[in-house]
Simulated assay, not measured.
Amino acid sequence: MKKLLIPILFLLILLMSACNNDETNGTANENPKESTTITYNSEEGPIEVPADPKRVVVVSTYAGNVAALGVNLVGVDAWSKSNPQFDKYFADVEEVSEDNLEKIIELDPDLIIGLSTAKNLDKLKEIAPTVTFTYGKVDYLTQHLEIGKLLNKEKEAQEWIDDFKKRAQTAGEEIKTKIGDDATVSVIENFDKQLYVFGDNWGRGTEIIYQEMKLAMPEKVKEMALKDGFYALSLEVLPEYAGDYIIFSKAGTQDNSFQETDVYKNIPAVKEDRVFEAVAEEFYFNDPISLDYQLAFFKENFLNSK
Rank of each mutant, 00 (worst) to 15 (best):
residue 142 T to L: 13
residue 165 K to W: 01
residue 139 D to G: 02
residue 142 T to K: 15
residue 108 D to W: 00
residue 99 D to Q: 14
residue 96 V to T: 07
residue 144 H to Y: 10
residue 123 K to L: 01
residue 144 H to A: 06
residue 85 Q to S: 01
residue 106 E to L: 12
residue 134 T to Y: 07
residue 104 I to Q: 08
residue 129 P to T: 12
residue 137 K to R: 07
residue 89 Y to Q: 14
residue 128 A to M: 13
residue 86 F to P: 00
residue 134 T to F: 06
residue 139 D to H: 01
residue 158 Q to C: 10
residue 151 L to D: 00
residue 173 E to R: 13
residue 126 E to S: 01
residue 124 L to N: 03
residue 108 D to A: 12
residue 161 I to N: 04
residue 135 Y to G: 02
residue 129 P to F: 04
residue 168 A to Y: 05
residue 159 E to P: 02
residue 141 L to H: 02
residue 106 E to M: 11
residue 110 D to G: 11
residue 94 E to D: 15
residue 121 L to Q: 11
residue 122 D to K: 11
residue 95 E to P: 13
residue 104 I to E: 12
residue 146 E to K: 14
residue 99 D to C: 01
residue 108 D to L: 06
residue 143 Q to N: 07
residue 156 E to H: 05
residue 168 A to M: 04
residue 175 I to E: 06
residue 123 K to C: 00
residue 95 E to D: 09
residue 139 D to A: 02
residue 100 N to F: 01
residue 105 I to W: 03
residue 133 F to W: 09
residue 111 L to W: 07
residue 89 Y to W: 14
residue 171 A to R: 09
residue 155 K to D: 15
residue 127 I to A: 04
residue 150 L to E: 03
residue 97 S to V: 03
residue 150 L to M: 03
residue 111 L to S: 12
residue 163 D to K: 15
residue 154 E to W: 02
residue 126 E to N: 02
residue 170 T to H: 10
residue 127 I to H: 08
residue 100 N to T: 06
residue 100 N to S: 06
residue 83 N to F: 04
residue 90 F to D: 07
residue 116 S to W: 14
residue 156 E to P: 04
residue 175 I to C: 09
